[in-house]
Nucleic acid binder design. Structure first.
Lengths: 340, 340
DNA sequence: CAACATTTGGCAATCGCTTGCCGATCAACT
DNA sequence: AGTTGATCGGCAAGCGATTGCCAAATGTTG
């Protein structure tokens, strides 16, 4: 049981095994592997060979413990099963991997408490955090950003690096589109009450509508799920508008289903516009007119910004804000306003 | 710079800070926090109080290094943006969280090499691994399972704990359904060549068809994405069958779109059945008849099995195999066979 | 009251790796 | 030849916990 012949007989090889076999000190092995220039080329070659032969893999824990860098970045999303976040997950994963980092995905269950708790736990175990659509207060976020590298997405906080997807801009396009189809009365179908994005979208909606002289209504708030679509559809119908813009595609798709159930034709009776252009928006029935955003790219940008904080070498100029452009994608769910 | 007053002035508090403030040794703090019975109730209370006051959070790295347990379980999926995996991700996340573990999500990019590499890296940094739809060989998987706790999903390997979703059973139901609608000639739209699930589905399809005396065709292989749907649809049309069963819903949904483009009516001209009942299968056009599986539950079961390996206390009897039942969900994409 | 068992807390070694500091080696320059 | 600088490798001190072992304190029993 006390066997420790330090060769290839025991369990997983450590840096010590490599050092012994290569006839050098562990410090040299360490350097050869993570700071190549600090060691003679021949020595390094030998060490690499031995390491490969032993199938040596450095312990992330030990490395993290002694160096303080974990090589891990956490991504906090409200709901991993919400398709909107898929592309963010993918975009960040991609970029992190390219930079040699590992992604830790955390689902905050749409709850500020879970989020705060996760942030606490994470403080020690990752190099940085990306928070998507955070429900925390500005103060909490600012405090978090002060104690560790952090980037928020779709949630602007003063002095905290942020990537926002500029949906408000597309809302203008969306309303123009509706107006050109003859709509004069439009309803905004609201998302979650505490959502920053929702507030921004509503504001943009309000302002653009006013500029266009439209009559507007607002219904909601609704949870951003297809299952909320029924209530949202009914409320919209009751508002009397001929068209509506929904907080997001999930809601819009749910509404589509409800309209169908009730025999309300889309777009003949009512036009509907979603937001995000998620998976499914193109093949639902009818296909959804929606505001398309470069979500995956936004994820990559967020990681670039974070990496910029972690490693000054990246020198991306330490931007504090990135705004991703969006545009309207017209499909089948919008059409001429019904008369009367 | 050399400040280290060990109280609350420095940086993040360590176990040592807690120990000093509480007037005990670090070992006692450690025990109080992770082995409560090993310490006097009063001492423990005091320590807990101090820890709370200092906002002390144990370092996962240090803990992992000295104890050998990381508290992390990795989930390897071929593609994080494939909706089929969403529920697995959610199911495992849920169950892991409940047991106090952290989930590490890894995207293997549908590649055996990436998978093998990730497995290597992970060997040292997590307590166990769940591999979904692995592309590795039986030998590789067996070896991996021998060197660390591991559970596979939708990939049977002798002597490796596995959770499989019993789609083949539902394929029987699906064919019965088609036969009852008058179909006599059916095409199987194949998934990825190396996929174990695909092989099983085909075999089940073949056998059930034979029992029913059906004429069958096979097209493919196709990557399991909606974008492969066009080619799949065209090939299916060319096969001359009046109905088809697709490897999965993604493919089926893509085919639906292509059929529409080509003016082929579903289900009047051709019936189509998907597999998995993913997000979107209920609101595509027409809604997809598909084989529904308890995916999230399967994820939870996988974690239970893994936890059983990690901690004998769980004593789930160390099952080696769990088979999740599936059933056919009939929606609008299947109908009576066209005549002629 | 002595002898023994049980709690309870501390000491110190460890886990595997990084890194500041130092000394040896060797080439280049004056 | 002597001095100066690089370059390269080793020593050893941590990083922040866990844990085996031991001793003091406390409790139990005859």
């Amino acid at each position: 049981m006390t066997a420790n012949t330090a060769s290839s007989n025991g369990k997983v090889p450590t840096i010590k095994d490599v050092a012994e076999l290569a006839g050098v000190a562990t410090s040299t092995v360490s350097r050869a592997l993570s700071n190549p220039d600090r060691v003679n080329a021949r020595t390094r070659a030998r060490i690499e060979e031995v390491a490969a032969q032993l199938n040596y893999i450095p312990s992330t824990q030990a490395r993290a413990l002694s160096s303080g860098r974990t090589g891990t970045v956490a991504l906090l999303v409200p709901d991993v099963t919400n398709p909107f976040y898929f592309d963010i997950i993918r975009g960040t994963q991609y970029q992190l991997k390219a930079a040699g980092y590992t992604q830790l995905l955390v689902d905050t269950e749409e709850s500020a408490d879970v989020e705060a708790e996760a942030l606490q736990k994470l403080r020690r175990s990752c190099d940085g955090v990306v928070m998507v659509a955070s429900r925390l207060s500005d103060e909490q976020l600012a405090a978090a950003a002060a104690s560790q590298p952090l980037v928020t997405m779709n949630r602007g906080v003063p002095n905290v690096p942020t990537v926002i997807i500029d949906t408000p801009a597309a809302i203008g396009q969306a309303l123009d589109h509706l107006v050109s189809l003859g709509h004069r009365e439009v309803t905004y179908v609201g998302g979650p009450a505490g959502s920053w994005s929702n507030a921004r979208r509503w504001t943009a909606f309000e302002q653009a509508s006013e500029a266009l002289g439209l009559t507007i209504h607002r219904v909601g708030p609704f949870p951003p799920k297809t299952t909320s679509g029924a209530a949202a559809a009914d409320a919209t119908l009751h508002s009397g508008a001929t068209a509506c813009i929904a907080y997001n595609d999930l809601l819009a798709i749910g509404m589509l289903q409800r309209f169908r159930e009730r025999g309300v034709r889309v777009p003949e009776d009512v036009s509907i516009i979603g937001c995000d252009d998620i998976f499914g928006a193109d093949f639902c029935n009818p296909p959804l007119t929606t505001m398309t955003a470069p979500v995956e790219q936004a994820g990559r940008v967020a990681i670039s910004m974070l990496l910029g904080q972690l490693n000054p070498l990246y020198g991306t100029g330490n931007r504090k804000l990135a705004v991703m452009p969006t545009h309207l994608t017209v499909r089948g769910s919008t059409g001429p306003a019904r008369v009367g």
